[in-house]
């Protein structure tokens, strides 16, 4: 082998590498343009996962501002008590980060869904709750009795504090026959740990 051939070898290698990178670069570039994913902006996707109670427990005036803050300010995703762990998991899944526990500084996950209820006899028509409601779910006018549109109420309880006569209660949503459904069966581990439950179960199933 001469020096000449070593140089040739080097040249060939360099040229080959350059060519290869050019070709693959072109392919990648083409693919990036051709198969570009038109995704939703991340804020919209996060907002879609939030429960939309607009309760402000996260420290932001509404769900969308919180979504914005998660993106812009890197706000933690575990500040939403109404959404609870399910929302945190969904957010973590979306953002591809490990799911933290709910930050209890912002409140606890409610066990039952509630709606605001105005004791109408006591309402003095001050409109303070109407101003406070983030989803305009309270109807009424000054000096006239107010009422809550129960189906639109998100249960955020922002209206309770401003009421001067304390006539707003947060009532649990009653369970209805139409809402009833089978619950997920207990796992065998649970059943084995608490055999007593099965016994009462069976007792319950024998006709009364």
């Amino acid at each position: 082998m001469t020096d000449m051939s070593a140089l040739e070898l080097l040249l060939t290698a360099v040229i080959a590498l350059v060519l290869l990178s050019a070709i693959f670069g072109a392919i990648l570039g083409f693919a990036a343009i051709r198969f570009k994913v038109e995704g939703n902006p991340l804020v919209d996707q996060i907002d879609a996962l939030l429960p939309q109670t607009q309760c402000g427990q996260c420290g932001h005036p509404g769900c969308r501002p919180y979504a914005q803050a998660i993106i812009d300010e890197g706000e933690a995703i575990n500040h939403c008590p109404p959404g609870g762990q399910a929302t945190i998991n969904a957010l973590a899944n979306l953002l591809d980060i490990p799911a933290p526990e709910l930050d209890e500084e912002h409140g606890e996950e409610a066990e039952v869904k509630t709606v605001a209820y105005i004791r109408e006899a006591e309402c003095i028509g001050c409109t303070k709750c109407i101003v406070a409601c983030p989803v305009d779910a309270i109807l009424g006018a000054a000096k006239l009795m107010h009422t809550v549109i129960a189906v639109e109420c998100t249960g955020c309880d922002l209206c309770v504090e401003p009421c001067p006569v304390d006539c707003i209660d947060m009532l649990p949503v009653p369970g209805e026959l139409a809402d009833w459904h089978w619950s997920t069966p207990r796992s065998s581990v649970e059943l084995l740990k608490k055999p007593g439950i099965i016994a009462t179960d069976r007792h319950g199933d024998v006709a009364a």
Binding site: G56, Q57, E105, G107, E108, A132, E161
Partner: peptide, 17 residues
Amino acid sequence: RAQLAIEQAQQRAAQQA
């Protein structure tokens, strides 16, 4: 006031936790 109410709620919740 809205901001304050939110902050208060937070403080309360934090304390409660």
